[in-house]
Design a protein around this nucleic acid. Structure first.
Lengths: 326, 326
DNA sequence: CTGAATATGATAATCGATTGACATACCATT
DNA sequence: AATGGTATGTCAATCGATTATCATATTCAG
């Protein structure tokens, strides 16, 4: 493949001049620009990013570590991150930790080996002390981590409040909250807190069911709903901590003959891809993922340039009313 | 960050020896190995992959270009690709073309700039001639491309046949096929061919509706199903060219009071994440994505080493019977 | 006409690792 | 004692770009 020297020779210019054209630095005449561009086209030249990164001491990549690519929430998040990275001239090095601690740690080191500009860490389980000495900016999304440089989350508490108020407004009085049980303290736990708080303010004491999750999914959906069905039947409005859980509940209700929304109104959280087209379509709390992803990438860039950034940014959420609570 | 020289100094060895330990090449004593490992740990050394890639003339990355990350089919595919890449020591450079021709082409060049080992091209629209002179292996998945070095697909035709036979076996006689209309000739078109062929063999002439797609999704679902509802009502079994389409059909049927599976049996294609838990759960044709992804990564590696590979590999499909056709 | 601004060339160092050539040891065998 | 395998050191080139320095040449304004 052609190198910058080939381009210089072809254009009849010095290597330094070509480099200045490429990086738009110093004095360059229009004629030089044209000559370089023509030579590049003729030789089908693409600058070697490896060499550039080596010289610049960092690549143009951003490492993204998620626990599950296929999960619709993460799929959406990755999509937003890719778009944001593209806009800011960065690339995504996508790494799937599968919630495996060792894998997550291994991927952090891999990011260092590749001299990424920053690491976006989504949820996951990484313990703090092991990654304390990483000298690459770490931005977390929807996850607490003391070792991180910046964290981004949505207003989970407010989301719970919105869900409660919506259900109450729709006439529900026997409220239930089903929350996924993660192994460490996550910002998402605040969803339930907000829900409870709002319920109590309206004089309602909600039921709460903890659902054991494995890699962000129910371990055994059939058993879980079978065991919980009595309590579900006693309620007329339920808020689930994520849309995946909500859709599974709706399926269990369909099987059990509980009609949604007539018998039971359902509100989820996240507003993932399928939420708008499942049957019935799902009322949910939407996280502004596009904005959150954009901010994460932006902060990673700022941190890379040693500029100060806010330690924690909270984005507003919005209730999207659909059929499941109409 | 520590360099190989620092490690050599710390271990009291020469740079060459350290390099040989790192790359497991030539003669190395156990004591040298230990000393190097200890020095690496002490200095928290991570080899600079940029420097390595520059020297080796290719990175350890594989570029993956998809038209939509968030689409559940691609999310699953990306997940499988990441896993396969991990197993073979490669990383994923994830690029979302959004079906935009220029973006896809831009991303191909970006892959060249990053000296990726290979490019996995999923569906998408890239025209052939523009990428003919790419000197990086290109493996396509579910997509025809003359310029590609290898293509991988599932047995789409057979999938259509399985769908038809399943519906007929379940007692359906008024069969319908709704297919997404892509702008170029894709392997997925064979799904409909297989369906038709099998129907005709059983003496049934299926109805066919073409659904206009935009970026692998219905442009206007409400209008589409409103306009098609009469023909849908006349049938008792429908095969859709993908699960996303199938779920939207099920929603439209729910709205229109058509019961699934009692009034209409539904079969989709792909077996994406939600297919097993939507209401009702969706009978579908499963592509062996894990195997297809593994093969794609494997072929990219072989091609990179100039080894011969099969030009086209077709994987078997399997019908997964669920509630929507029971 | 002179000095400043503009434009480019030539050259070399640098980023961090790989690799090969060559030299030099220390062991075992035979 | 000679031979050959094992283990390592030294040194230098290389990958492809960036960047700084210094030199040179042109152009233009005052």
């Amino acid at each position: 493949m052609a190198t910058i020297k080939d381009v210089a020779r072809e254009a009849g210019l010095a290597v330094g001049t070509v480099s200045r054209v490429l990086n738009n630095r110093g004095y360059i005449s229009e004629s030089a620009r044209v000559k370089v561009r023509e030579a590049m086209d003729k030789l089908d030249y693409q600058p070697n990013e490896m060499a550039r990164s080596l010289q610049k001491k960092h690549s143009n990549m951003i490492g993204v570590i998620v626990p599950r690519i296929e999960h619709p929430y993460f799929a959406k998040l990755i999509s937003c991150l890719e778009e944001a990275a593209y806009e800011q001239g960065n690339r995504l090095l996508l790494l799937n930790s599968k919630g495996i601690r060792d894998r997550e740690h291994e991927y952090m080191e891999l990011c260092r080996r590749n001299r990424v500009q920053g690491i976006i860490l989504c949820n996951g389980n990484l313990d703090l002390e092991r990654s304390g000495d990483i000298n690459i900016p770490v931005v977390t999304i929807e996850r607490k981590m003391e070792g991180g440089d910046a964290s981004i989350e949505c207003n989970n508490f407010e989301g719970g409040v919105l869900a409660a108020e919506h259900l109450i407004e729709k006439g529900c009085r026997r409220l239930l909250h089903i929350r996924g049980l993660a192994d460490i303290n996550m910002p998402a736990d605040q969803r339930g807190e907000g829900f409870e708080t709002a319920c109590l303010q309206h004089g309602i004491k909600p039921e709460i069911i903890h659902a054991p999750l494995l890699e962000y999914q129910l371990e055994n959906p059939e058993d879980f709903f079978k065991n919980s069905m009595d309590r579900i039947k006693e309620s007329d409005g339920v808020f689930l901590s994520d849309d995946l859980l909500a859709v599974r509940l709706m399926h269990a209700c369909w099987t059990a003959g509980i009609r949604i929304p007539e018998d039971l109104k359902v509100v989820g959280f996240d507003d993932v891809h399928f939420s708008s087209y499942v049957t019935p379509s799902l009322t949910t709390i939407r996280q502004p993922l596009r904005e959150m992803a954009g901010e994460a990438i932006r902060l990673a860039g700022l941190l890379n340039r040693k500029e100060p950034v806010p330690k924690n940014t909270v984005f507003p959420v919005k209730l999207i009313a659909r059929e499941s609570s109409s």
